[in-house]
Nucleic acid binder design. Structure first.
Lengths: 189, 189
DNA sequence: CTCCAAACGCAAAGAATTTGCTTTTAGCGC
DNA sequence: GCGCTAAAAGCAAATTCTTTGCGTTTGGAG
């Protein structure tokens, strides 16, 4: 589906990356995020710290890398029979995953890294999933909101509240979905 | 207006905090963000590093502290004659400030810190400013959207795009404002 | 099979962080 | 005013993390 960014699979480089990623995930699960250091991860992964420093530069970059990978959706949105139902189900699950403690931390890790590549990829993941739902809706001949409208009207508030305020409850997520549909349906009429 | 959180003004503690904040701001303006370290800030501020370590713990916390302070609005939203005009003007300025390089960095600094206190305060700043606009509109007897509606419908997309995608242009900000007004006006009719 | 470039390990040097102890300072009761 | 006290800062040693030079290993290409 998407092309890998790293080195060819199977090489030494790929093995090291995999074991470092796994070590980081394990340590994050086992101890407080503030206690995790590069030397620790290196020891857990069975490599020397300098290897990690040379590849990732600093802890934030590595953790961001790990977080982006964990944030990648591992399945297609469930089908409920209608585009609106699909979107609601997917958005509710998205909101729940993201507002969990671990989800919140992953978002922060992604945002804390240097460039904008990580956040963009995460945005791309959401866009992709919504595109799948939109495609199915279109195939059924339904009216369905523009993807950017959904990003602004549903995803943005969910993430904004998680990051800056307090996570939205499921019923508020439902209202957001209702909102983007109300606008598009009114426009279609 | 709001009570200070720090120690009493005028004490030694307050002087140290002020000089450290100023030193951090100066250094951030003068050099790359990745080059700024606690020992550097300490030297610039004329204190020992251990003072900073004891008070803030780590660089992120200090920078978040500085960023939150810089993000605090320093004036009331300008008056344009209508609530909608006020909101549009304020939102456009907000979007511009936040999407500038320095604004983006400050947001990231705030989000990178440990607790949720910093982000909440930033959200509170926006809420406060919007409340001022809403109050003026109400005094004129206008229909005006709920503050949370504006947070979700205008602020959230602005920040979401800055953080995860690409900053919105001014005309898109205008669309967002139009959107929340369309909904509330339709409801009022 | 041999060579090459990329990536890793090792270890020393350099920088940041932590910590115990001492000294300073601002506020408080007398 | 005058000490007294608790909080905060300075200092310096110990620890931990980060950077870097150099030799070695490894996987792939010719």
């Amino acid at each position: 589906m998407a092309e890998r960014e790293g080195p060819r699979p199977g090489g030494r480089s790929a093995r090291v990356q995999a074991s470092v990623h796994r070590a980081a995930r394990d340590l994050l699960a086992r101890m407080d995020r503030a206690e995790v250091t590069i030397p620790l991860i290196a020891a857990e992964a069975g490599v020397t710290p300098s290897t990690i420093y040379r590849r990732w530069g600093e802890l934030n970059e590595l953790l961001a890398d790990v977080a982006v990978e964990r944030l990648r959706p591992d399945m297609e949105p469930v089908e409920t029979g209608s585009g609106r139902g699909d979107l609601l189900a997917w958005a509710e699950q998205y909101a729940e995953e993201m507002s969990s403690g671990i989800g919140r931390e992953m978002i922060r890790d992604v945002l804390a890294a240097e460039g904008a590549a990580g956040p963009r990829r995460c945005c791309g993941y959401a866009r992709q999933q919504i595109a799948v739902i939109a495609g199915r809706a279109e195939a059924r001949g339904e009216v369905f909101p523009d993807i950017d409208t959904i990003l602004d009207g549903v995803i943005a508030p969910i993430l904004f509240r998680i990051l800056f305020d307090e996570a939205l409850g499921l019923e508020r997520v439902g209202s957001l979905v209702a909102g983007v549909f109300a606008t598009v349906e009114r426009r279609a009429a």
